[in-house]
């Protein structure tokens, strides 16, 4: 953020290249700079090595794949006759995550606005803690609760949607016991605390001067939030959503428990009222099969796609955040 004078004093501090005027660099500066650089390098190395590991193990199996990896719905990674494709898995993963985001982002932002702009102080703190507590519940509990307690309550709704809109591919039957729809909602609850907590943090930091500036122009409370608070928090909300989405894409146990798997080789279907497997749950469900390098490679290829997907999503988020950087 730039300071109120448009150029913050930070701008004048020498950058990481160390273009300090000639002279002795202070010991503390050197140590701290070194430590910071080192940890940056380590993180990048870990990510790169993960990618390399996934790629080297996946490529041989991908080359042996008898069907198209991207467009097939088959998954029979038999050594010697590898047939595996990710279309259905990719669809299920993206559907569940998108649905979770559609619910969790607006809800999280509204929560954060309520906690920082509307709630009286005596209520804001306890309410925030309760939401934070949601993050402390283990995902297996969410999974069990989702399928045992929550799913039965949605039977009627899912049936009604199917009856009314069943002609539309997203709502086609037959309805599974554990659907993408249910998993999406449960996942939304699981990522809500991250999105709420981070959005709350940025909204709370909106400078009072900006809020008063809007109010003094005759803004109502909501208009003040729109002109001062939301633009200020935009980048933070995007980051928060990305962290939430990362969690959603990778969530394993809860999904494995909730979503019913479908018979291998079923033709592609788009319905959110049916089951399926995500990348993570596919791998977890079949851990027992990791005995042959070529069939393991198929699962690692699935993992690689998840890895790339997460990367792409983050890159898009960066672009969104940077697009109006001059104004932040």
């Amino acid at each position: 953020m730039s300071s109120i004078t448009g150029r913050s004093t930070v701008d004048q501090v020498p950058g990481p290249t160390g273009d300090v005027p000639r002279g002795r660099r202070r010991l503390g500066d050197t140590l701290f700079g070194g430590a910071a650089n080192l940890s940056g390098v380590v993180v990048i190395a870990i990510v790169a090595l993960t990618g390399v590991f996934l790629a080297t193990r996946a490529v041989p199996s991908l080359l042996d794949d008898k069907v198209n990896f991207l467009t097939s719905t088959e998954w029979v990674p038999e050594p010697g006759n590898l047939r595996f494709g990710i279309l259905q898995i990719l669809w299920t993963t993206v559907s569940i995550s998108v649905m979770a985001m559609i619910i969790a982002v607006p809800l999280g932002v509204l929560n954060a606005l309520f906690l920082t702009q509307y709630a009286p102080r005596w209520l804001a703190r306890p309410a925030a803690s309760v939401i934070d507590l949601l993050a402390a519940i283990p995902s297996i509990v969410y999974g069990l609760w989702g399928i045992q307690v929550f799913a039965p309550h949605l039977t009627g709704l899912q049936k009604a949607v199917n009856d009314g809109l069943g002609w539309f591919p997203l709502f086609e039957g037959p309805i599974s016991a554990g659907t993408i729809f249910i998993a999406g909602i449960v996942l939304a609850i699981m990522v809500l605390p991250i999105i709420t907590a981070l959005s709350r943090e940025v909204f709370a930091q909106t400078p009072a001067a900006n809020k008063e500036g809007a109010l003094a122009l005759g803004a109502t409370k909501w208009e003040m939030i729109r002109t001062a608070v939301l633009p200020f928090g935009r980048a933070g909300v995007v980051s928060a959503s990305m962290l939430g989405l990362g969690r959603a894409l990778g969530e394993t146990i809860a999904i494995t428990i909730i979503v019913s798997s479908v018979a291998p080789g079923t033709d592609f279907f788009a319905s959110w009222l049916q089951g399926g497997e995500t990348f993570a749950s596919k791998i977890a469900n079949n851990a027992a099969e990791f005995n042959d390098p070529s069939s393991t490679g198929a699962y690692i290829a699935a993992g690689l796609v998840l890895f790339v997907l997460t990367f792409v999503v983050n890159a898009i988020a960066r672009v969104i955040v940077n697009r109006r950087k001059a104004f932040a």
Binding site: I4, A209, E212, G213, L217, G218, P231, F327, A328
Partner: peptide
């Protein structure tokens, strides 16, 4: 709100909206 539309204000520290 309508009072503030009639009576405008300029603050001690310049506070343009930073994102605009």
């Amino acid at each position: 709100v309508s009072v503030r539309r009639t009576v405008g204000m300029v603050f001690q520290r310049p506070n343009p909206f930073p994102t605009m």
